[in-house]
Nucleic acid binder design. Sequence first.
DNA 1: ATGGCGAATGCAATTCGA
Length: 262
Amino acid sequence: MKIATWNVNSIRTRQEQVKQWLIDNNIDVICLQETKVIDADFPLEGFQDLGYHTYIYGQKAYNGVAIFSRQPLENVKYGFGDILPSDLVNDFDEQKRVISGVINNIRIVNLYVPNGNSIESEKYQYKLAWLDLLKQYLTVLKQENSEELLVCGDFNIALEDRDIYKAIGKENHIMASQVERESLRSILNLGLTDIFRKFTPEGNFYSWWDYRQGGFTKNRGWRIDHIYLTDELVKKALNCYIDINPRKLTQPSDHAPVICEF
DNA sequence: ATGGCGAATGCAATTCGA
C-alpha cells in the first residue's frame, strides 16, 4: 500500500498533474494540502472516476485539505473541533487545515501547518499556538484509540539543518527557528517517527523549492513535508521517499509529493 | 532582498505563500 502527501498549491490548477501522478504511481491514499477552493467548487469527479473515495475540507482562496482513498475511510474528522472541545479550539477551525480518517486500523491525519510568515509576525504566534493545539489533538487521538497513527502533511518546519540546502544563517528564519523546531519535536515525542529519515539519513533531499531565483534547478530546497508514524507502523514501513519528478513539469506545484510504502 | 514567482480574487492590483 502507498500513502502519499502533497501540497498541490491549488487543486484546480493542478488537477490534471495530480490525476496522472496517481495513475502512474499506483497511489492508494493521497493527502492534499493547499487545495484553495470551497467544497462546492472542488473538482471531485475526475478523482472519483479514478476510483477514489474523496473527503474534502476547504475554504475560499487559501488553505484547504483533502484525502482521497481507494478504500472508503471510516470515522472521518474535520478540523480540530471534531476531536477537541470548542473552548480549546476557539477560532482555529476558521482556517481549514486538518482532516483525518481511518483505514485498516490506521488513523491518517492530514495537516497543513500555518506558514508563520516571519518570526516577528503575528502569524508566527498563530503558528505556535496552532502547533500547541495540534499537540493536544494528537494526544487525544493517541490516548483514546487503539489505532496506529500516520500523521502527514506540509509542516512548514525543517526539523534539522540537514533538511535545508543551506542552514547557516537560518537560525531566525521562519520554518527553521529553534522555537518552531522544539514545538515540532515535542509533538514527535508523543511517539511519532519521521519515517523518511529511517531510510535516508543524508542531506540534499527536499520537498519544497521556491519558485523564484531558480530554486529547484539549483536544488535550493527545504524538507518541510513529512510523514510521521507510530511504532507499529514504523516496523511495517517498507520505504519512504520524495518524488521530485512532478516538480520538473511545466506549471508545477512548488512542493513535491512524499510517499510511504507498507 | 523593498527583490524574485505563482495562485486567487476579480478584472488591476493586492494578498499570501515559504
